[in-house]
Structure formats: C-alpha cells, structure tokens
Design a protein around this nucleic acid. Structure first.
Lengths: 254, 254
DNA sequence: TAGTGGTCTAGACCACTCG
DNA sequence: GAGTGGTCTAGACCACTAA
C-alpha cells in the first residue's frame, strides 16, 4: 500500500522536453512538491526503487538520481535493507544566537533529548580550550533536539570539572544546563565565539539526525564564558544543511 | 599531456577490499589526496572521463561518482564541453564577522573585484528592509572576492539612495564601501543581523564562484545600520560550502 | 569536426534488514 | 528467504565548446 497510489498519480503526467529540464530533475521536482505540500507526509515509506522506476518510466539509475538529491537536502532518508522514508521539514528551524533554543519563533514544539552524560578524557580541542593536560577528564553531555518528530540538531558539549564538580547531579535535578550553571555558581554567561563550517555528516551524525549517510551538514563550534572570562563550555553541534537558519543578532547596548 | 602521468600513477596501485570501502570512494580518496598535497595543482586539467575510467579500471559511471563528490566539495569543477579542472582550496577561508574582510588571518592575498555597480529597482527583500515602495531604486553593488586565483565569495549589496545619493562616484573615488559610507556621512556602523543558510548554488553563482552547477553553498544575508539605527546596507552573499569558516565573536565591551 | 561532460538505459551482484 | 537500497558495468545519445 504505502504511498503507491500517490506516486502513481505523480508519475501519470507526461514529462516536459528533456532539453528543458532533465527527466531526473522533473522527477525530483514532483516528489519534492508532494513532500512539501504534505501529499507525502512525514514518515511515509516510498515504494521500492524498482517499482518507482517502473512507475516513473525510467531506469533505476535515473530514479535514484532524483532520490539522491532529496536525500542530500534532507527531504528523504534511505535505510539500507528497509526502505526510503519522507523526512520532510519544509520549514527551516531558526536558531537565534543570543536567545534560548526553545524559541517561540519555531511554532512547533522543540523537544530536547539527553542522549548521554558522563566523564571522559577531554577531546583534544576541549583540552586546549580549557587549558587541560592530555588525559584530564571533562563532563561530556550529548544532546539532540527534535522539531516535532524530526531530529534537527545534535551536539556534544564539554564542561570543565573544575568549574562544575557536581554537574551530573545538578543537571539531573534542575533538568537543564542553565540549572547546572547556576548550581555551579555561574549566574550569567556569554557566548563568546561561534564558528560555522560546512561538512559531511559522519555515520553516527547521519544516524542521529535521521539523514542518509554522507549528506552535507552545518557544523557549529561555540564557547561560553562566565562574566569573568573563564571558559565554561565547549559545544560542537550539527544541523542538516537545508533544515536550519542561523540568525546572529548584534547584542543590544546596555 | 595534462595530468595523465600523475593519474596513471594514482591508478597504478590495486584497490582495497570493496566491502571495506567502495571503489568509487577509493578513487575519490586518491584524487583528493593528490589535490590537497599539490600533486595536482590548482588549475590542472584532468584527462577525459573515458580515459580516466580506463586508467582507474572502472566504468565511467563509477569514475563519475568519485568526481561528482569532489565537485560538490569544490575541489574539482567540471565545464561541459571543456574538461574537469582542479579548483583546490585546501585551506578554508576565514571570515570574521566583526572585522574587515582582508584579514591577515588568511595568509594569501585577498583580491576584491567590483563586478558591477548601478541603480536598479530594489529587490523585494531590500524594499522591505529599507521601507521602500515597489519600483523604487537602490544602489546595487556586486562584488567578488578571490583568494589567490580562486573566487571564494560573491555578494550583491543594496544601499538606499536616500542615504547615499552619490554612492557610485564616492565608491569610485575612494575605492571602498567604507569610503562611500564616510562620504555619505556615515562615520560608523554596526552589523546588526546576519542570517546563515545552506542552499544550492544557482547557475550564475556557480559560474562566478567557479563551482560545478548545483553544488551546496553557504548563504549569508546581513544588514548594517548607522549608529542611529537606520539600515544602510543589505548584503546577500555566498561561499562554497567547504571553502569557508565563519567566525562570530562577541562584541567587546566598551 | 573532434572531444568534452551530461543524461539515460538495462542489466547484474552485493550487503543489509526483517519476518 | 524475500525485499531493500548500494554498487558497478557497458553500452548509448545528447548538448556544448573549441580549434
């Protein structure tokens, strides 16, 4: 059953001139329109590639080309041996640099998910950032954000134990990083630096963000300091490239 | 002649187990290593795809898959009817939000290129930003930045005529936007908002950035205001996704 | 006109997932 | 074991570019 009838409908109209727009792009267009209009809702499983190729009257390679593009843009996600699913996310998730994450701008509810928390040897980057020696431990916190059902952000945060000796229990009790900040004596903080780069998703990142392997993502590395200038957090996170809009606003005077 | 001998060298060693890493990725690896080490210098033209497929002992489709990935990452650029060229750019270009573009951090020289300047009806976005009516004109300035010989940034800037009635001549005389700012009575300004999104390059953008068509890019939209809060510039620019690192630093107190 | 990259086909075998 | 997506082949025709 799945989305077979919908796809049959999509494939029923004849193609425009190939010289105008390649067939695979026309297939890409039709599927994309169906996803953004909701004709193919989030989570829908598509028919097998062989079936779809027949439906659209093209070879499997041509069909795969259209699907591949949608996978790179995060609209479809392929799982080997299972199928291809609609990932959607027609609206971009907006991240404001100077506001909390659960911003009302994103109408749908944001769910923050704690994946893991513990003490591990600091990453090379964290050791340098915090001025630690190799082998020194830090608090590592892994978080994932979900917009509706769709994961749109994954981050690994590291905190110096010297600043937050009881981070785990503080975090568990207050249920938030800001709560752990306060319990550690940090009443206020500043995001001092943010670095943005493009990259390919690693296997685990793609898995956690529910993306096909090796699709482009946006990567951010940021540091927070307390008011005295001491660095209290190193955060490295990633979003689907086409699923987020990052907004940096100048700080308000005063 | 071209890079045929180099490629023959690359293709001479046998492949690892296909189950470990697909052939096309192994080819991708070898070409990538040759590009980043300088074995295939910037601007080098590769042999034809048919020849390379024979060299690497694979079908053309498999070879194209390896090439395609490098094109998406901006290491290679294909020009239809001409050939495939090394674009390189192994070092990322670093853009600091609160500093001038020609930052000493980028060791190689940055060249700023004025592509066009003139008055045109404001874009819909500029009209809204400046509070203009449809059809009202603005100053439009198109710029491109080159790192060495490689284009790494393209931007379209719009300025309100009400603020800069003599922008063109001021810009021509001073040779810089800041000069035109000063001539227009704007001695100081603030970058108030920056929005970052991922996108696919349009045909003209790909052309100007010397990228293959429809590769992922990073897009920024930013506004500047004078000290009174009046918006004096709307800038929309783009970089190759894998060729830039954007750094946002908190403003210094005072 | 010759060579290039872009598109497309009709097969094949594989590793993986799940019932 | 049946079905899935991932890889790979050996062809073909096209539009484009440059000499």
């Amino acid at each position: 059953m799945i989305a077979l009838e919908t796809l049959r409908e999509l494939a029923s109209t004849p193609y425009a001139d190939r010289a105008e727009r390649p067939i695979w792009l026309q297939i890409y267009d039709r599927i994309g329109a169906a996803v953004t209009t909701g004709l193919l809702p989030e989570g829908t499983r598509l028919p097998g590639e062989d079936d779809m190729a027949v439906l659209f009257g093209v070879s499997r390679a041509t069909l795969r080309r259209a699907l591949r593009r949608h996978q790179q843009e995060g609209h479809l996600v392929a799982r080997k041996g299972v199928g291809i699913f609609v990932r959607s996310l027609s609206v971009r998730y907006i991240v404001h640099q100077n506001r909390a994450f659960n911003d009302p701008i994103n109408s749908e509810s944001i769910v923050e998910e704690t994946l893991s928390i513990g003490r591990i040897p600091a990453s090379a980057e964290a050791a340098e950032t915090f001025g630690l020696c190799p082998g020194d431990e830090v608090i590592e916190l892994r978080l994932r954000m979900l917009l509706g059902n769709m994961p749109i952000y994954f981050t690994i945060k590291e905190f110096p134990i010297s600043v937050f000796p009881d981070f785990e229990s503080d975090y568990a009790e207050t249920g938030s990083i800001l709560g752990a900040y306060a319990a550690g004596g940090v009443e206020n903080y500043r995001r001092t630096e943010t670095r943005i780069i493009g990259d390919m998703a690693s296997a685990t990142e793609a898995d956690l963000l529910q993306l096909s392997p090796a699709v482009p993502i946006l990567r951010a590395r940021s540091t927070n300091t307390d008011l005295s200038g001491r660095i209290i957090e190193l955060s490295r996170g990633c979003w689907p490239l086409f699923g987020v809009e990052l907004v940096f606003e100048a700080e308000q005077a005063g």
